[in-house]
Amino acid sequence: MWQLADHELDSRLLIGSSLYPSPRIMQEAIRASGAGVVTVALRRQQRGGEDFWAALRELDVRLLPNTAGCHSAREAITTAQMARELFGTHWIKLEVIGDDYNLQPDPFGLVEAARELIAQGFEVFPYCTEDLVVGEKLVAAGCRILMPWGAPIGTARGLLNPYGLRTLRERLPGITLIVDAGLGVPSHAAQALELGYDAVLLNTAIAQAADPVAMAAAFRHAVQAGRLGFEAGRMPERDLAQPSTPVVGTPFWQQT
């Protein structure tokens, strides 16, 4: 069990609800992933999306609405307010897009929107980059959770900047950190958890797999393995090989 905001969760995997072949496969994949939190987009479905949302509500998961598709703080704030009414939750995954091509977050609009939404009583999950200073500004604005990208959304490239992500982890020890976006295979998720990240959030890697349900199960196990690996305490990296069997007794003709 771990704590996300004030909510107890079993799984350290958060999952998205877009791009599955059908709602039925989405439901099966979400169940197989073990995720307790599912993100849901609002911007394009604020009218008429009830049937789809009903398919999510059947799953007994906590919904995390997002502001995907918003390009300004104002637009994101309005969408968050609608999401609160529609879904009855004060949780909001805050996305303010600054660049349309790689869906890179706009750090300035993000900090502005986060400050305003926190003042309005929201629990803000900001989708940000791994930039330390942006992270600190979001924390100063009142965020308890940060969601830096691993790579741009949908690229499946994994953790492009492990150094930056590690720095963020070391410098913000009390903050819940979730790698959001850019993961492609289960080992990427394991790597994030091994770095000490609290959780990962992903969508496309599962939804667009040839078999989404099997891939969801694979990520479930990878997240568990990564977290266990982190808790177990890794051995440090070394520059030279250190054989686990002493070589002292090895006959001289076998030592090259």
Binding site: P23, R47, G49, F52
Partner: peptide
């Protein structure tokens, strides 16, 4: 789009 809104194109 997962919506049953038949309104004009956006």
């Amino acid at each position: 789009i997962e919506s049953d809104d038949p309104g004009p194109i956006t």
